[in-house]
């Protein structure tokens, strides 16, 4: 049943919340050293002062027994209150919200770009497997999965921004700022999509009902593209499910190199500055996104694939 497949999802969230809560303790040991870490994160040369430490402990909910701290923290998180950053001192929820909006836009563009290039490439390649076009596309695809972001991004900047001067090298604001980072992020999913779509298309073209349609006089192009449209829908959801969490919180390299205020860079800066509440909240949100994406993909796959739907119903 669908329910049973979805059951582990909330469990993962609970585990993630415990890990996130425990983070400062994993780093700092007992509560006292956590408090000192908070102080050090704020003022470099803080000298130990019990009064200051007590005030800080109360301010960040670090007083009392650990289980109580966890429940209070979880309660606040469920109300949408992710606390204040140790270093940034502003509400983490607002910081993360802004950053996720940026990363979300970027991720959406990258996924669209990946689907728009990867799916047609896969279909075209499948028309004549082993042909010139297939071989060229396959080579491009191998490049797509082999060139890491930290190599691709600087070279794109060099060519498009410094040498040609047609696109901005950095920053965030207008649509022109989206192009290079989205290109960088799309390379890997596009190559993967092309590969998957190619394999499935070859598979489909060999099936009986396609042969029948061809025999009935439908042009090969029509058959191909009708199939591609359906397949595209499924692959895009599958792709999004696979990559959306990674793109929302994991595009650290791209966001650092292009100076984009997204969630990946927020987390990265927070790790370097040891601003643990930001890391805690970011972890939770990324896991939650992955969980939701998992559910959506599961449902869409069921709806789109009649065979699987029947199989589920029969259980």
């Amino acid at each position: 049943m669908l329910l049973r497949r979805l059951l582990p999802l909330p469990l993962l969230l609970v585990v993630a919340s415990v890990v996130a809560f425990a983070l400062p303790r994993l780093v700092g040991g007992d509560t006292d050293s956590v408090v000192r870490a908070v102080l050090r994160a704020r003022v470099a040369s803080a000298t130990p002062d019990p009064q200051v430490e007590a005030a800080v402990a109360a301010q960040f909910g670090l007083d009392g027994p650990v289980v109580g701290q966890y429940l209070r923290w979880l309660g606040a998180v469920l109300r949408g209150d992710l606390g204040l950053g140790y270093v940034t001192r502003t509400p983490v929820a607002a910081q993360l919200g802004d950053a996720l909006a940026v990363s979300g836009l970027l991720a959406g563009c990258a996924l669209l770009l990946a689907a728009a290039t990867g799916i047609p490439a896969g279909v075209y390649a499948a028309r004549r497997p082993g042909g010139l076009l297939d071989r060229v596309l396959s080579a491009v695809g191998i490049a797509g999965v082999s060139v890491p972001e930290f190599v691709l991004a600087p070279w794109l900047v060099l060519v498009a921004a410094v040498w040609l001067g047609v696109l901005p090298a950095l920053g965030w604001g207008g649509p022109q700022h989206l192009v290079l980072p989205a290109l960088t992020l799309a390379a890997y999913p596009a190559a993967l999509a092309a590969q998957l779509v190619r394999a499935e298309t070859i598979d489909v073209l060999a099936r009986d009902h396609v042969r029948l349609a061809r025999a009935k006089g439908l042009s090969e192009g029509r058959v191909l593209w009708r199939h591609a449209a359906r397949l595209g829908c499924v692959s895009v959801t599958a792709l999004s499910g696979m990559f959306v969490a990674g793109l929302l919180g994991g595009s650290v390299v791209v966001e650092v190199v292009f100076g984009i205020p997204g969630a990946g860079r927020l987390m990265y800066d927070a790790v370097l500055a040891r601003d643990l509440p930001v890391v805690q909240a970011g972890t939770l949100v990324i896991v939650a996104v992955a969980v939701v994406a998992g559910i959506v993909v599961e449902v869409v796959a069921l709806l789109a694939d009649p065979v699987a739907r029947d199989r589920e119903a029969a259980r």
Partner: peptide
Amino acid sequence: GPFGAVLVRTADLLAALPTVLFGLLAAVV
């Protein structure tokens, strides 16, 4: 039984999480 299903689902879910997230967490700890 359900044990296998839970194992696979856990793997599915973890697979959707970015490795960089674990890189960041491990670097903090």
